[in-house]
């Protein structure tokens, strides 16, 4: 069922195209993810929009994280330790949903990304017959 496991130099299992959000990523990504977590609040989202640089300065983002946010570069945010659950809150400020994020990360247009999902389209429904004698 599974292809042969791929192992990196430090002995960690690699899954192609699939960043695993482990302790290293969580540590590296902490400032960026902390900023994104703050966007649960509308007031903080407004503050970010009003002064992006000033808002980022409060969270001590790394140079790579600053560049990724300035460039709206989702792949660079992930590479810098961003976790998609938190990044989704930032993406919302930019008017992007998770399908937009998927298209941006895979380098295809939004329509092509949606078409890829639709290629799996199916509806399978089962309902058991209720027992009459109850």
């Amino acid at each position: 069922m599974l292809p042969l496991a791929q192992i990196d130099d430090s002995g960690r299992r690699m899954i192609p195209g699939t960043p695993v959000f482990d302790g290293d990523a969580a540590q590296a990504g902490y400032p960026l993810n902390a900023m994104c977590y703050s966007f649960n609040s509308q007031a903080n989202r407004d503050a970010f929009v009003a002064d992006e640089e000033g808002y980022m300065a409060r969270f001590a983002l790394t140079p790579a994280q600053l560049a990724a946010v300035r460039g709206r570069d989702v792949n660079a945010m992930i590479a810098a330790g961003g976790n998609v659950y938190y990044l989704a809150k930032l993406a919302g400020i930019f008017g992007l949903n998770v399908q937009d994020l998927g298209a941006l990360q895979t380098g295809v247009g939004l329509d092509e990304f949606k078409a890829g999902l639709m290629s799996h389209a199916v509806t399978e429904r089962h309902v058991a017959q209720l027992e009459q004698a109850q």
Partner: peptide, 8 residues
């Protein structure tokens, strides 16, 4: 949701 395999 993330990575080159987004949409899996």
């Amino acid at each position: 949701l993330e990575g080159g395999r987004a949409g899996h």
